[in-house]
Structure formats: C-alpha cells, structure tokens
C-alpha cells in the first residue's frame, strides 16, 4: 500500500545527478546503435586510409620529410572526430524534438549548462572513440611521430567540443530531416574538404590560400597535424587561440538559447 510507505518528505536532491544521468543516457543511446554510430564511421575512415595510405601514401609527398600517408592521417583522424561529434548531438537532440520526448527533459531541474555539457561530453566520447580507432588502424599504413601528443589530444578535444556545439545548434534550428542534412552536407562537409585534410594550403595559389584561411576548420586540422608532425601552415598558438575562441563563443551562444528555451519550449 502506498499509504504504508514512510511519509514522503521533500525529496533530497543531488544537484549533479541530472547531468550525470543525461550523460549516461546519451552514451547508452549511441552504444545501443553502435553499428550506425561507431562501426560505420570507422569503416568509412578505414576506406579513406586505404585509398590515401596504401595507394598514394608512399608515391607522393606534400610536406618535406613526410609521406602523403603521414600527412593525410591526422586530417582523417580529426575528420572522424568532427563528423561524429556533430552527428551525435545533432541527431540525438533533433530526434528528441522531432519525436516529442524532449519534454521529458524540459520538465526536469536540469540547467542549461548541464544539458549542453551532457550532450557535448557524450558526443566527444563518441568522436574521440572513432578517432582513436582510426589512429590504431592507420598504424598499418604509416607511423606518426607524435611530436606534441598532449597538444594533439587537446586539439582533438577542442574540435570535438566545438562541433558538438554546432550539432546542437543545427538540431535547434532544424525542423525537418532535410534541413538537418543540409548542415552536414552543405556546411560541415565542404568546410572539412576545403580545410586542408588532403593538402597543405601552402601549395595553393595565394588567393585560394587567403580564402582557405577564412575557413575555421583549417585551424583545427592544421593545429592537430602540427602537434603530431611538428610542422604546419599555422603557428600552434594561433590554431589553439582561434579554435578556443570559436568553441567558447558557440558554447555561450548555445547555453543562452537552451536557457531561453529557444525553439525547445513553445
């Protein structure tokens, strides 16, 4: 009998439990569909590695002292990190909005920063997991020198964090699957491909090099590669400075939108 239960006093509250629960929920969500969320991106990245590592890897060199495979692998690792961080937050939040179960979160005491950090950390875990597996597979094709391993890890985390915010924003501003796919196909993909994954911008004509420097992804990819190979198109401090500022700006913007309930609460 419910009446025989101990008197129900005002329930105790564990302030960080809502955050930890949402984080756990997000991790369990992507693990439950791990073929789609982890295995498929790894296979895609492995195909890139095969094409650029096994076929072209030793035949051309775009940076002195390194094979093409060694040049392209850091970019492919970061591409996996970025794509999966974006995909995790964007698909999870968009589906919650689309199916209506976002209200389960809106009625809880979770704060906007907790909400964003839980989504973001789960996306980072997925992105970094894919990145690590791509790196392990890449060892079959070419060894990397890892000149500044901690800086490389920091840039991978920063990139993942940044694109998790972009994913949240895409989910907030999209009303249909078509709109959501536009962000990945017409924004993320071109920025990645033109951001120096496959070539150094120093080999471009000056006007194209100038345009490439306006692409924020350049600083993430080049900074990551610079930390691993020890050479890059941009100083590490510039790359980290720009990446950090963009990540912070996006986090603040996303926090304000979620706090206001913009396009989340009616």
């Amino acid at each position: 009998m419910i009446g025989e239960q101990p008197p129900r006093e005002k329930a105790d509250f564990i302030p960080w439990l809502p955050f930890l629960t949402l984080l756990l929920r997000e991790i369990l969500r992507f693990l439950r569909v791990s073929v789609q969320t982890v295995l498929t991106p790894i296979i895609t990245a492995s195909l890139y590695l095969f094409v650029f590592g096994a076929t072209l890897g030793d035949r051309i060199s775009v940076v002195e002292g390194f094979s093409y495979a060694q040049f392209v692998i850091p970019g492919l690792i970061l591409m996996g990190v970025i794509n999966n961080s974006f995909a995790n937050t964007s698909s999870s939040l968009f589906m919650a909005r689309y199916l209506g179960n976002i209200v389960d979160l809106l009625v809880t005491p979770i704060t906007a920063p907790q909400f964003i950090l839980a989504y973001t950390l789960a996306a980072m875990l997925r992105g970094l997991l894919v990145g690590v597996v791509v790196w392990v597979i890449s060892m079959l094709f070419a060894p990397l020198p890892w000149i500044h391993p901690l800086l490389a890890l920091l840039m991978a985390c920063l990139s993942s964090f940044l694109f998790a915010q972009v994913g949240l924003l895409a989910a907030i501003f999209s009303d249909t699957f078509d709109e959501l796919s536009m962000y990945s196909n017409f924004v993320i993909l071109p920025l990645i491909y033109l951001g120096g994954v496959f070539y150094p911008i120093s080999i471009l004509p000056s006007e194209w090099e100038f345009l490439s420097r306006l692409n924020p992804l350049l600083y993430l990819i080049d900074g990551f590669r610079h930390a691993i190979l020890g050479v890059g198109d941009t100083p590490l401090s510039t790359a980290f400075g720009i990446a950090g500022l963009i990540a912070l700006g996006l986090f603040v913007g996303t926090t304000i939108l979620v706090h206001l309930g913009y396009r989340l609460r009616s």
């Binding site: 564990i14 302030p15 960080w16 809502p18 629960t21 756990l24 929920r25 439950r32 209506g100 979160l105």
Partner: peptide, 21 residues
C-alpha cells in the same frame, strides 16, 4: 512521449536521475 532506445526498466532509472532524486 517515450524514449525509444530503452526498456521500461532503464527508462524509469533514467527518469529518476533526471530529477536528481
């Protein structure tokens, strides 16, 4: 409104946690 990824058991545990209870 339900979370399609989980079972009833998991859903109730998650929902309790959302409230910090």
């Amino acid at each position: 409104v339900i979370d399609h990824f989980f079972t009833i058991d998991r859903t109730l545990r998650i929902h309790s946690g959302y409230y910090g209870a």
